[in-house]
């Protein structure tokens, strides 16, 4: 077979897409692994962040990088509040209650966004260049998003690996009951983890808003895929989610190359379903 440069283009674009998906999965996975609660509304935090960037940049002329940093901080605060106000009172309650509560939050955030901004699709109106490389075309926004997502993930890795608090966060995920004997306040760990999860959603928001329009239901276009990636990798397993993000993004991108984009998603979802039969605990999951 002749070497197909367009296939290579699709593979590289899949890789770039995988970076942002991995970032999204990381936040959701971290929260699940540490707090043992699934934030169904995680993508709605991203939506809130996208509106934040849009609003700051397009309305108030705040420079984009600064707007993104403010969004990271703002969504981190939002994540903190989600835990403090919604999750913390229902910790230890049956999972169905937790699902209903975070599901309720999803509708609340969507409705709130509709109230503030209406249902229109909004674009920050920034045209970033397309880069040509040996006959292949890559959007600069995607490359930027990939690089920034990678930096975000590496920073988190270093934090979790090197610092006392980061180590405690990982320890809580393994044995939460004994943490007090080591002087760790699990309540504080949960709040910090929620803020980090929010911060990651804020970073993702700053990157996605470069490529996609924002509207109140935008969370639905990547919430489900993020959730699927987490489950595929083994819910709560950070490395698993990372690997799964790149697998799914290749299915989407290569499938999209041979058929069309919609089919790319269909193939990725079919792969997910098949994997759930073969390996329900996820690629790197432990629980049988």
């Amino acid at each position: 077979m002749v070497f197909d440069i367009y296939l290579l283009e699709a593979i590289i674009n899949g890789l770039l897409l995988g970076g942002v998906l991995a970032l999204l999965a990381l936040g959701l996975n971290l929260i699940f692994g540490v707090i043992d609660v699934v934030w169904i509304s995680y993508a709605e935090l991203v939506m809130a962040g996208m509106y934040g960037v849009y609003w700051l940049y397009a309305f108030f002329g705040v420079p984009l990088v600064l707007a993104a940093l403010i969004a990271i901080f703002g969504v981190a605060v939002l994540g903190f509040l989600v835990h403090y106000l919604v999750i913390s009172p229902i910790l230890g309650k049956p999972p169905i209650n937790q699902l209903l509560a975070t599901g309720g939050l999803l509708f609340f955030l969507q409705s709130f966004a509709t109230l503030l901004f209406g249902v229109e699709f909004r674009n920050i109106g920034l045209r970033l260049p397309v880069i040509e490389l040996w006959d292949m075309y890559f959007s600069f926004a995607r490359i930027l998003a990939f690089a920034a997502a990678l930096i975000g993930m590496v920073s988190l890795y270093v934090f979790l690996k090197r610092t006392f608090m980061g180590t405690a966060i990982r320890a809580v995920a393994q044995d939460r009951e004994i943490m007090a004997t080591m002087g760790v306040n699990t309540r504080q760990v949960y709040l910090i983890t929620s803020a980090i999860g929010g911060g990651l959603a804020g970073l993702a928001a700053g990157l996605l808003v470069l490529q996609y329009d924002v509207h109140p239901a935008v969370g639905l276009s990547f919430g489900p895929i993020t959730f699927m990636i987490c489950v595929l990798g083994g819910l709560g397993n950070l490395l698993g989610g990372f690997v799964a993000a790149f697998i799914m993004s290749q299915f989407i991108s290569i499938g999209g190359f041979y058929l069309d984009l919609e089919w790319g998603y269909v193939i990725a979802f079919v792969f997910f379903i098949v994997m759930m039969f073969l390996r329900p605990q996820g690629i790197l999951g432990r629980r049988g």
């Binding site: 006392f164 180590t167 405690a168 990982r170 320890a171 393994q174 080591m182 002087g183 760790v184």
Partner: peptide
């Protein structure tokens, strides 16, 4: 977690 990370938690 590694042995050293376990010990690190003891010094939290």
């Amino acid at each position: 977690m590694s042995v050293e990370e376990n010990l690190k938690m003891g010094a939290f």
